[in-house]
């Protein structure tokens, strides 16, 4: 690099108005959707993926699918081709159509379990946090339920009923809600010690009003984050239940069922298992990304609490 003798430009501009160079480029404020995506990339990516998957599930009949239950015994276990995009299974059913329709089961189970478990956990957690004498009893029961792996508990519950989507949802929700109850209880106990809650008690606010006005709005954020994790976990549990034949009836295409069908042929026809597995992974990834993004957006310290 050569040193060029550039004329000093500085004095002239310094005498009059200080013409300071911009050392730091001005911070560009991004607005709208791009601004949001820039600030919360995880929410944007996870949310976009999830919206695509939901649209795919809703508009499944319009996406070039055939009836996912139609059998074609003469066209069994075909490799992916123009006719069968993802191939066909050992009964000649179109795997592409089955995977697309299967998204419905996974998403419905995921969301329904997230909502049910959150509501049940919210109620139990609020009671536990507010009614001191009930707290130790309720929490010991919750501890007992949490000591059983969720899948095992769900399998046991499914053994009591026959396989159907509502029953799967109920079984997984029961297995998942103690975690929510524990979270809500801990948030309630923290909030109760907050001076503004004590001030509300001291200024004569009734307990239901304190819950509605001061406690609930502050539990929504951590609860939403927890709900996304439960949603992801429920989707996996549902697939496992279907895979081992304890979940959705085989007639309903769900990702777990498709994988169960392809299990025996895994080494010769891997595509039967591959496509539903990929979709399950993408969906769970999308939900988890969304959850992580929400957690960071809501409260960076939450990472330690969950």
């Amino acid at each position: 690099m050569t040193v060029t003798a550039s004329p000093p430009v500085e004095p002239a501009s310094r005498v009059g108005e200080p013409d300071l160079p911009d050392i730091l480029p001005p911070v560009k404020e991004r607005r709208g959707i791009t601004g949001f995506a820039y600030r919360y990339p995880a929410i944007a990516i996870g949310g976009a993926m999830l919206i695509l998957l939901i649209l795919m599930a809703i508009f499944a009949p319009l996406l070039g699918t055939t009836d996912p239950t139609t059998l074609a015994p003469s066209k069994r276990t075909r490799a992916p081709s123009a006719e069968y995009w993802f191939g066909s299974d050992m009964m000649g059913r179109d795997i592409y159509s089955r995977v697309i329709y299967g998204a419905r089961v996974s998403l419905i189970v995921g969301f329904a379990v997230a909502i049910l478990a959150s509501l049940a956990g919210l109620v139990v957690g609020l009671v536990s946090g507010f009614v001191r004498w009930a707290d130790s009893i309720i929490m010991r029961i919750m501890d007992g339920m949490m000591s059983i792996p969720p899948i095992l508990l769900a399998v046991a519950l499914m053994a009591l009923t026959r396989g159907s989507v509502p029953n799967v949802i109920a079984a997984i929700a029961v297995a998942e809600f103690p975690r929510v109850a524990r979270l809500v209880r801990s948030v309630v106990l923290t909030l109760r010690e907050q001076p503004y809650v004590e001030a509300a008690v001291a200024s004569g606010t009734r307990t239901p009003m304190i819950i509605a006005r001061h406690i609930l709005p502050n539990t929504i954020a951590p609860l939403t984050v927890q709900a996304t994790y439960i949603c992801a976990s429920a989707m996996i549990t549902e697939s496992i239940l279907s895979f081992i034949g304890a979940g959705t009836p085989p007639i309903i295409p769900s990702w777990g069922n498709i994988m169960a069908d392809g299990r025996a042929l895994w080494q010769v026809k891997p595509f039967i298992v591959f496509f539903p597995a990929i979709f399950l992974s993408i969906t769970v990834l999308a939900v988890n990304l969304l959850g992580d993004g929400l957690r960071d957006a809501v409260d960076p310290r939450m990472a330690k609490r969950l």
Binding site: Q194, P195, Y196, E198, A199, A200, A202, S203, R213, H214
Partner: peptide, 11 residues
């Protein structure tokens, strides 16, 4: 009541 910390005593 008036508490010490005006930050945490307001919702």
């Amino acid at each position: 009541v008036v508490f010490q910390d005006p930050y945490s005593s307001l919702n």
